[in-house]
């Protein structure tokens, strides 16, 4: 009887101490936007997704969930040679004054930032730093525009537009977060 009781207790204790296994996707699909920027999507999420090119790869998971990536360079935005693209998100999201910029560049950032605020209806801005990347995230509910810069290069930055994903979920797609 003592052994039976002890065995029962051990089963209960053992059952409680087994760590809960978190189910993680087993397969991932990588989408390379450039040599620097890659998205990593659980392959199972891509079932029934629609993928097309629109200045960068766009993934429509369903009618409410979408990711769209875009590489920004000085040439694409007619920015002066030598402009440090790592500052781009700061100007775009009004984290840095544009007064020191030339008239055209200042106007472009001021107008774009106004448009973004209007589009996302006053988004919350957050900045996250990882080893080699900085993430500038503008989100309103689950609509986000994210700029990703790399500390060790200023040739290009990455913009990720997303619908239906908050930052907490979105960061799983971005390597190095």
């Amino acid at each position: 009887m003592k052994f039976l009781l002890l065995g029962f207790c051990l089963i209960i204790i053992g059952g409680c101490s087994v760590p809960q296994e978190i189910e993680r996707p087993k397969k991932y699909t990588k989408i390379h936007y450039s040599g620097y920027f890659t998205l990593t999507i659980p392959t199972s999420m891509l079932a029934n997704a629609k993928i097309f090119d629109s200045d960068g790869t766009v993934i429509v998971f369903d009618k409410n969930k979408q990711l769209s990536g875009f590489i920004i360079t000085n040439e694409k935005d007619n920015l002066p040679e030598g402009f440090d693209l790592r500052e781009y998100p700061k100007y775009f999201l009004e984290l840095k004054e544009t007064d020191s910029l030339s008239t055209d560049v200042k106007r472009m950032f001021d107008l774009s930032s106004k448009e973004l605020k209007e589009s996302l209806n006053g988004p919350a801005i957050s900045v996250y730093e990882a080893t080699n990347k900085i993430y500038y995230v503008a989100c309103k509910k689950e609509s986000c525009v994210t700029f990703i810069t790399m500390k060790n290069q200023n040739e290009q930055i990455f913009m990720l537009t997303s619908e239906g994903f908050g930052w907490d979920f979105l960061k799983n797609f971005i390597e190095g977060v």
């Binding site: 629109s54 200045d55 960068g56 766009v58 920004i72 935005d77 107008l111 913009m159």
Partner: peptide
Amino acid sequence: YGCSVATKSRWKS
């Protein structure tokens, strides 16, 4: 277009 190509690209998608 006076805004950034990033803005344009977003609307294009």
